[in-house]
Structures are given as C-alpha cells and as structure tokens.
Design a protein around this nucleic acid. Structure first.
Length: 136
DNA sequence: GTTCTAACA
DNA sequence: TGTTAGAA
C-alpha cells in the first residue's frame, strides 16, 4: 500500500512515516514509480512504535529495541540489552516525575503567598506571545 | 491527482 | 510536526 493509505489506516501522518523511515524504524519497498510500498507488517511495527511511545520511549530508544520485539501486543525478548534499556527508562521517568513534583510544590507555594488576588487563573497565550505581560 | 525530496515556519 | 515548492 502507498503512503497515504497507510497513513489513514495507522493514524500516522505521511510526514512521520517518511521520518520513521529516515530514522530506520521502517523499511518500505519501492514501487517502480519510486513511491514507498508498505506491507502488513509495517502496520504492526507502527502499532508497536505507538505502544512504546506511550511508555515514554523516544524514537532513538525504540529503534534499538525494535529487533528485540517479538510481536504486536508488544513483548520483549528478555535479552540483557532490553532489560538494561527499560530500567534506564524507568530511572529517567522517576527522575522527571520527581522534578515536576518539586516544581508543582514550589508553584503552589507561590500561589499561597499571593493570597488569592483578583487575577485570572490563566492568561491567554496571546498575552505572553505579544510580550504584553510585564515581568518584574 | 499522488508522491517524492528538501527546506522553511 | 505541519506545510509548501517544484519535479516526476
């Protein structure tokens, strides 16, 4: 199937499908016309990529993991590389959760200190983009 | 009309 | 990531 068809079936934009190929995640054949020709397996690969991304894995990590993925309902071949990579990812996630948790606490403390003044909860993005908000 | 590559927003 | 230009 050609790129647009796969895009509709997978929900992945044609732009991203080309990008995935550039990153070595999928290797579609080429028609004599030069158009990419995707197979059924590519759909499975795409589903796997989506599943892995939901675990916060980046394309770079997914790329090295790809060869160790058994089949669609994402399953890993328990090789040392996989275990090490997943544990590393777990550590990074725990770290960002901690960082954001601290950031949230600080923000809430600032809000408490302002004592609920008559300011809007949220400012329109346009105010920030136009630079109309004064920093002091 | 569709897809390709490259490049810009 | 989306979008667009110019070519096939």
């Amino acid at each position: 199937m050609k790129i647009n068809e796969l895009s509709k079936k997978s929900g992945v934009s044609a732009r991203m499908l080309r990008y995935y190929e550039e990153q070595g995640l999928i290797r579609p054949m080429r028609l004599s016309s030069g158009y990419r020709d995707y197979c059924q397996n590519d759909i499975s690969i795409l589903k796997n990529i989506k599943a892995l991304q939901e675990a916060g894995l980046t394309l770079n990590v997914i790329r090295v993991l790809m060869p160790c993925i058994i089949s669609q309902p994402v399953r890993f071949d328990p090789c040392p590389l996989i275990v090490a990579t997943l544990k590393d990812q777990r550590l990074k996630l725990q770290q960002t959760i901690e960082d954001q948790s601290r950031a949230l606490s600080i923000l809430e403390q600032y809000l408490d200190e302002t004592g609920q003044m008559d300011i809007p909860e949220v400012l329109p993005n346009s105010m920030w983009e136009s630079g109309s908000v004064a920093y002091a």
